[in-house]
Amino acid sequence: METRRLRLLVELSRLGSMRAVADEVHITTSTVSQQLAVLAREAGATLIEPAGRRVRLTPAGQRLARHAVTILAAVEAARLDLDPGAEPAGELRVAGFATAVRRSLLPVAATLAAAHPRVRLLIHEHEPFEAFELLAMDAVDLALTYDYNLAPAAFDPGLEAVPLWQAPWGLAVPAHAPATDFAGFAGHDWIVNSRSTADEDVVRTVASLVGFAPRIVHRADSLDLVQDMILAGLGVGLLPMDVGALPGVRVLPLAGPEVRLRCYAVTRRGRSGWPPLALVLRLLATG
Rank of each mutant, 00 (worst) to 15 (best):
M1I: 04
R5V: 08
L6N: 05
L8Q: 14
L9N: 11
S13I: 03
R14I: 03
M18N: 12
A22N: 03
V25S: 07
S30R: 15
A37Q: 15
A43D: 07
L47C: 01
I48P: 00
P50F: 03
P50R: 15
G52S: 07
R53L: 08
R54G: 11
A74Y: 08
A74V: 10
D83Y: 12
G96W: 02
P107I: 01
A110R: 13
A114T: 13
L122N: 10
E127A: 09
E133D: 15
L135R: 11
L135D: 05
D141E: 13
Y148T: 10
P163S: 06
L164A: 06
W165V: 09
A167V: 14
L171V: 03
V173E: 01
A177L: 08
F182V: 06
A183F: 04
G187T: 05
I191T: 12
V203L: 05
V203K: 07
A207R: 10
F212C: 03
L223F: 13
L238S: 08
P240T: 07
L252I: 13
L252R: 15
L254H: 02
E258D: 08
R260N: 09
A265M: 02
V266N: 12
R268T: 07
R271N: 11
W274P: 04
L277P: 11
L277T: 12
